[in-house]
């Protein structure tokens, strides 16, 4: 097997002097081009894990390597440069609500442009062209100058995807990208993410709520329970017993299509 793209070693995160333990000694590897889905109940540490990988949250212990670089050792400045390669999309989209879609998408290029220019809102012509191309890709070209809060949830998430695309990422972190959306829109958003994974070769780490979505899109699944890694394997391997183990005894699988 080739050198893994992402390696997470003994990752631990505790809050408040040990009062809250979010992650307990989590280790796994991800190959380049994989679509890894993280499942688990709310509060099982999925979001914390994803945020540790681009160090939006500082891990308490453990090491993370991306493409051979130990990112847990990078200085804040180096980390900022490194984050350009890591796109991220969020459950609640996290768009600038009062700004246009175009501005929102252009924020994906902040790391590539000199600060003084971006503070004045000046982006180079090439970036604007790229923004329009990416908006076309997610099917929102004609909404380019509409305010972001005038869009529907699914459209807002697609803007989020376009913003991530602007970074031309190697790795995409998706934190419950469809939890705030209805089932029909969920699939369209997931398909854009899948397209990024297939066509651009972006490695994807997505946390998902529904097992059916995880089975449908993931090439591999890991499961977290109370901050611990309880499952790591192919989607088919999750049977009824495994399911109960991850989600608890009373859980019932829901099909979402």
């Amino acid at each position: 097997m080739a050198e893994p793209y992402l390696v997470v070693e003994h990752l631990t995160k505790v809050y408040e002097r040990g009062h809250v333990v979010a992650l307990k000694d989590v280790s796994f590897e991800v190959q380049k081009g994989e679509f890894l889905v993280i499942i688990g109940l709310s509060g099982s540490g999925k979001s914390t894990l994803l945020r540790c990988i681009n160090r939006l949250i500082e891990p308490t212990k453990g090491r993370i390597f991306i493409d051979g670089v130990e990112i847990t050792r990078l200085s804040p400045r180096q980390m900022r440069r490194f984050r350009r390669k890591i796109g991220m999309i969020f459950q609640h989209f996290n768009l600038i609500k009062r700004a246009t879609v175009m501005t929102n998408v252009l924020t994906g290029r902040l790391g590539y442009n000199p600060t003084w220019k971006t503070l004045l809102g000046l982006f180079p012509r090439s970036d604007r062209e790229l923004a329009l191309r990416n908006l076309e890709r997610v099917g929102l070209l004609e909404k380019a100058y509409v305010r972001a809060d005038e869009l529907s949830g699914g459209q807002q998430q697609r803007v989020g995807i376009a913003r991530a695309l602007m970074q031309q990422p190697e790795l995409l972190l998706a934190d419950e990208p469809v939890s705030a959306l209805d089932p029909a829109t969920s699939h369209s958003v997931m398909q854009y993410i899948e397209q990024m994974n297939r066509e651009d070769g972006v490695t994807v780490l997505a946390s998902l709520h529904f097992l059916s979505l995880a089975r449908r899109y993931g090439t591999r699944i890991i499961a977290l329970k109370d901050g611990e890694l309880v499952f790591d394997g192919a989607p088919e391997e999750i049977d009824d017993r495994k399911f109960k183990e991850i989600y608890g005894e009373e859980a019932e699988e829901v099909e979402i299509r």
């Binding site: 246009t100 175009m102 012509r125 604007r128 062209e129 329009l132 380019a144 100058y145």
Partner: peptide, 8 residues
């Protein structure tokens, strides 16, 4: 105009 944001 569309590209450079004149529409806005």
């Amino acid at each position: 105009e569309f590209l450079m944001g004149r529409a806005a």
